[in-house]
């Protein structure tokens, strides 16, 4: 075999990106362990390894039966990763608009559906509410209504607005239902 120089696949091979900016050692500290790029929507595992949330999510989806850290193979799960929120996030981009949503920080949202779960609606109500024009997400959220919602959307996002809007509609439907029960 012909002897060639050691760098046979040159760094400036076709399509190679302009190097330089990713070579600073301190920036490499914040590289995702899966895509090797600077972590976006960063999360950190309990074993301390950093990933982009979309990257880690895809890894967990690829092997649902064997969820281990891609670096050290410690047990890992969606519920046990911590999102990192840096200051000066210049991309004013909502991570929730990307699939999959990053798990929220461990901070329970205040209940904003006060008193509502006490009504105890029958299944028929849920069915009639679920089938129809409402998106699937709303349907599932009605089932979990009594629980604190760990994945509630952060304030100010489009999803948060939507949830607020829908919960208001839901409340009105409930009031009408009660009035109907009383007067019918």
């Amino acid at each position: 075999m012909a002897e060639t120089s050691e760098a046979r696949a040159s760094p400036s091979a076709p399509g190679g990106d302009a190097g330089g900016e990713d070579d600073k050692p301190d920036e490499r500290m914040l590289e995702c362990n899966i895509c090797l790029d600077t972590a976006r929507d960063a999360v950190v595992s309990m074993c301390g390894h950093l990933f982009c949330w979309p990257c880690l999510h895809q890894w967990l989806e690829t092997r649902p039966s064997r969820q281990v850290c891609p670096v050290c193979k410690a047990a890992i799960s969606r519920d046990k990763v911590i999102p990192l929120y840096g200051r000066g996030n210049t991309k004013q981009e909502d991570p929730r608009n990307k699939v999959p949503p990053r798990p929220a920080g461990q901070r329970t949202e205040p209940e904003n559906n006060g008193g509502f779960p006490g009504f105890g609606f029958g299944e028929g109500f849920h069915m009639s509410f679920g089938i129809g024009a409402f998106p699937f997400g709303v349907f599932t959220s009605t089932f979990n209504f009594g629980d604190p919602r760990p994945s509630a959307a952060p304030r100010g996002t489009a999803q948060y607005e939507e949830e607020q809007f829908l919960s208001k509609i839901f409340l009105w439907v409930a009031i009408l239902f009660v009035l109907w029960l009383i007067f019918a």
Partner: peptide, 21 residues
Amino acid sequence: NIAAKRVKREIKEVMKSEEIM
């Protein structure tokens, strides 16, 4: 996209590694 990007990055890094040297 992610696969191609990672392979590119890996090749770039591997060229600087002591194993290649």
